[in-house]
């Protein structure tokens, strides 16, 4: 599938998905029949705004029906230097969407010589979710969260999406996936304007912890194997993943708090 030298009236511009369709690599093809529960599912992811940007977090578990199919999946990844994407839903489709989205941002940046605006990136992701609607109707649902640092406005911003590609900007926090309900509640209770970075990280970890407590498809911190959720901050300095050492300390404190309550629930 070699790309030809396009004439100027026939040029696909900076759109990588359009280019892929031109060369016969359509990334979004709906399955012929219902395909729910045929592939692993990725679950709880969230994002919270804080004073200097946003925190994104996601657990590491992928499930297939009631089986754990993967313990160390990474559902929260950098989209580029100043934005990240987190995905819940059908893992295979989601991973391909992430890959395509990252490529789209890089492709545009290389062709046009400057990156897409943060809002433009959210819009691009929205179009990809919409393109997946046929597959989503057959059960291969992908619901992302997009967050990043808007250098034009000097603030963190975040968006959630529905399966039709509907794009909703949130001002405070967002959580989605099977454990999204309990995670949202924790975020709602703990959120206040202008959280510091370490407070926002702690809040995100607590939300994942509580989601894992009640939702079997959400994985908690796995101290036995040393697998912790993916937590990252995005600020003016770009994407920074929080190290497992820091997360271990945060989760130990949360576990100690649970123990101090003296309750099993």
């Amino acid at each position: 599938m070699k790309v030809p030298l396009f004439a100027s009236d026939n040029d696909p511009g900076s759109d990588f998905s359009a280019l892929l369709r031109r060369v016969g690599l359509d990334p979004f093809q709906a399955p012929a029949g219902p395909a729910a529960n045929l592939a692993p599912h990725a679950t709880t992811v969230l994002a919270v705004r804080f004073a200097d940007g946003v925190v994104m977090a996601g657990d590491r578990r992928a499930t297939m029906g009631n089986r754990i199919s993967n313990r160390e999946m990474e559902k929260v990844v950098p989209a580029d230097r100043h934005s990240g994407v987190a995905i819940s839903g059908t893992a295979g489709v989601a991973m391909d969407m992430i890959k395509l989205f990252q490529l789209q941002l890089e492709h545009y940046e290389k062709l046009d010589g400057r990156p897409i605006s943060l809002e433009g990136k959210a819009n691009q992701l929205s179009q990809m979710v919409r393109a997946n609607l046929g597959a989503a109707m057959q059960g291969l649902v992908v619901v992302p969260i997009f967050a990043g640092y808007d250098s034009l406005r000097s603030t963190g911003r975040l968006w959630d999406f529905d399966i039709t590609g509907g794009r909703y900007e949130e001002r405070e926090f967002v959580a989605t996936g099977s454990g999204g309900g309990p995670a949202s509640t924790v975020l709602k209770v703990g959120y206040r304007l202008g959280l510091a970075s370490d407070e926002a990280i702690e809040l995100a970890c607590r939300a994942l912890w509580e989601a894992a407590e009640v939702d079997s498809a959400t994985g908690g911190p796995d101290a036995l194997r040393g697998i912790y959720p993916v937590v990252a901050t995005i600020t003016a300095d770009g994407w920074q993943r929080i190290t497992d050492d820091v997360l271990a300390t945060v989760f130990t404190a949360i576990a100690d708090g649970q123990r101090a309550r003296g309750s099993a629930s």
């Binding site: 599938m1 070699k2 030298l5 280019l19 060369v23 690599l25 490529l103 290389k110 062709l111």
Partner: peptide
């Protein structure tokens, strides 16, 4: 510049496939 765009496109499509 047209040749440059050709290069970026081919590289990105090959890397994707």
């Amino acid at each position: 510049d047209q040749l440059r765009r050709f290069g970026v496109r081919n590289a990105d499509v090959k890397g994707y496939a």
